[in-house]
Simulated scan of single mutants.
Amino acid sequence: MGNEHLYATRSAAVRGARQAAKRALGRSFCAYEGPDYEIHPDGREVGYLGNDRFFYRLRGPALEAASAGVVKVPMTFLDDHSERDLPTPAIVRKTRSHYFISLADPELAELVDDARHYATDGCDCETGLKLAARALLAAIDKGHTHGA
């Protein structure tokens, strides 16, 4: 699970990687590039100086801890589900268009049942919501099959 945010300097990317690794590993974080994260230039120049931008990827124990039992799901259906005041899994992390939720959350079963109802052809709802429910179910199924 890489960080999609680009940093203007390598040192900023290192700070971002260290913070992400520390969140994932807690006290066992060793703060060294190598076992926990790696820094990469993205190859595209930025600014008037033409310097590379950088991004990081967690790896090893930090990647395993950060992604253990967490699945990336589209926002659309989860937002609709929570707006209807139904039990909703806690959001671990979010991006512009996705939430990360825990597969161990006790509220996940209610979300999946609701998504199954909306994903069926017999449901009389707007097409976008139906497609969002199907995308959510596919993401959760993918998370379960890949051991996330």
Score class of each variant (00 low, 15 high):
A119Y: 00
L131D: 07
H144G: 07
R57M: 09
T95G: 15
T127F: 05
V71E: 00
P74L: 00
P61W: 12
D121V: 07
F77A: 07
G2N: 09
A62I: 03
A24M: 00
K130A: 07
P89E: 00
E83V: 13
V92A: 03
L25Q: 10
D114E: 14
E83W: 12
G60T: 02
A66M: 11
D80N: 01
Y37G: 04
N3R: 03
T120V: 12
R44L: 10
D105N: 05
M1L: 12
A133Q: 05
A8G: 15
G50Y: 04
L25D: 06
A17W: 09
A12I: 03
L137D: 09
G2C: 02
A139W: 01
L131P: 04
Y7S: 12
A132L: 00
R23D: 15
R96M: 13
A109F: 10
R15N: 03
A139K: 08
R59K: 15
T127R: 07
D79T: 13
G50L: 03
L103Y: 09
A65D: 12
D114W: 02
C125R: 04
R27L: 10
G147N: 13
R44T: 10
A21G: 13
D80M: 08
L78F: 00
L86Q: 12
R93G: 13
K22N: 09
L25A: 02
A68Q: 11
D42R: 11
I140S: 02
V92C: 02
A133D: 03
R59P: 05
A132F: 00
R57H: 09
N3E: 06
H98D: 15
F55V: 06
F54Y: 11
D121M: 14
P41L: 01
T9L: 10
N3P: 01
G47K: 05
H144R: 15
A138V: 04
E126M: 11
R10V: 07
T76H: 12
L86K: 06
N51T: 13
D124M: 05
V14E: 08
V112T: 06
P74K: 02
D42F: 11
F29L: 06
H144K: 15
H146S: 13
C30G: 15
I140D: 07
A135G: 11
P87K: 01
A119L: 01
I140M: 07
D52N: 12
E126T: 14
E126K: 13
S97Q: 04
R15L: 03
D124K: 03
R27S: 15
